[in-house]
Design a protein around this nucleic acid. Structure first.
Length: 385
RNA sequence: UACGCUUCUAUCUCC
């Protein structure tokens, strides 16, 4: 079992979750009993992909087989709750772990912080931070970075910077995670000047930027159309010994989309493939959005069909990108079809989806349909999400 | 009883 655990772990680290699942099946077919670590590993794998029921089912299974969950198990379960913002479930695990005598540690609290932060429950996150102090778990750098990331994503860049100063005052030195979060936060808040201050501070503090940092800066300059600055970031990226990754390419695609630079967009996509990068789901999502912004729904839809053909599964962002593309052209009949498809599938429409449909009606001059849909939404006949 | 394999944070997409 130990050998299988090592293999499963290797797959999990490389994102090969299906292979991990196959190994898990294989070991049982060979008559080997999965042990505690095996279950912990698989809970982590299932938590990263696939339906929640599978996580819950596996947890039941291990208990039924008489394997007692440990701190790792509960930490993994709470971590798995983050993907779908399952706050209630996380609290149940948190209480259960204390009830069975497992002591929450920093990882437990940090996972809760991340869950609350990504779910935009900022008050709960702060409460958790205080509970950590109380329970002799003073927040470490991961805890601070987690909160800073949450604030940055939510657009609260001032709060994020303040938290960075708090951690400094406690003698915890911000690292490349901290600074990259802050840069991204300033960018999202439309404060590139502030971002540059942070970047200078980062270098003065002796913190070396990495590829994530450069990708953030490329996106920041690029979307503002500051291409000379953007190229300087590329130069620095290369001279620092980094090499571009798929996120760099996705960022470039997004940048040319946002600037409506159709020719460059197609060119970069070609170069990306020539460089040997295999488009991922996020690449396709970016392309659908980018072509639409360049005024080409046809190409956006071609990309969408290409994505389906390549065997990738659309997610909510894909559908919403398609809906937004159709909406821009007022193609409300097609938008309705997509929405119907969503209702019958795994990705239920959210607020953004319905906004796009409203937009599609508006741009298609279908005032009556628009009003009716708005009434349904505000009247509670339709529940987004 | 302890220890070992397993659990937490940043950059791209739904404008």
């Amino acid at each position: 079992a130990h050998a299988y655990n090592l293999l499963i772990n290797a797959c999990s680290r490389n994102g090969k979750y299906n292979d991990a699942t196959l190994l898990f099946q294989e070991m049982q077919e060979q008559g080997l009993e999965p042990n505690l670590v095996t279950y912990n590993l698989m809970l982590s794998v299932y938590g990263k992909m696939g339906p929640w029921d599978r996580v819950a089912g596996l947890f039941d299974e291990m208990k039924n087989r008489g394997i007692r969950p440990d701190e790792y198990t509960y930490n993994t379960l709470i971590g798995a709750c983050r993907r779908d913002s399952l706050c209630e479930e996380a609290i149940i695990f948190f209480d259960e772990m204390k009830a069975v005598g497992c002591k929450p540690d920093r990882v437990t609290y940090n996972s809760l912080l991340d869950l609350y932060g990504k779910s935009r429950y900022h008050d709960e996150a702060l409460n958790t931070l205080q509970e950590m102090e109380k329970n002799c778990c003073p927040p470490n750098i991961v805890a601070y970075n987690t909160l800073i990331s949450a604030y940055s994503k939510a657009g609260f860049y001032c709060e994020a910077i303040a938290l960075k100063d708090t951690m400094l005052s406690k003698g915890i030195h911000p690292d490349v995670f901290t600074y990259t979060s802050l840069l991204s936060g300033c960018d999202k808040a439309g404060r590139p000047g502030k971002a540059m201050e942070i970047f200078k501070e980062m270098k003065n503090a002796g913190c070396t930027p990495n590829l994530c940092t450069y990708n953030t800066l490329i996106g920041m300059y690029g979307k503002k159309g500051k291409f000379e600055e953007m190229m300087k970031v590329f130069d620095e990226l290369r001279s620092s010994g980094c090499t571009t990754d798929i996120v760099t390419w996705n960022t470039m695609l997004s940048v040319f989309g946002q600037n409506g630079m159709h020719v460059e967009l197609s060119q970069v996509f070609k170069e990306m493939k020539a460089a040997g990068f295999v488009p991922e789901r996020e690449t396709f999502n970016t392309l659908i959005c980018a072509y639409s912004r360049c005024g080409s729904v046809e190409q956006a839809m071609t990309i969408y069909r290409g994505m389906l053909k390549s065997g990738l599964c659309p997610d909510l962002a894909t559908y919403n990108a398609v809906l937004a593309a159709l909406a821009r052209e007022g193609l409300w009949k097609q938008a309705e079809k997509v929405l119907t498809e969503m209702k019958g599938g795994r990705c239920k429409p959210n607020e953004i989806s319905y906004c796009s449909l409203l937009n599609a009606y508006a741009n298609g001059k279908e005032i009556k349909r628009m009003k009716d849909l708005a009434d349904d939404i505000y009247g509670g006949t339709i529940y987004p999400c």
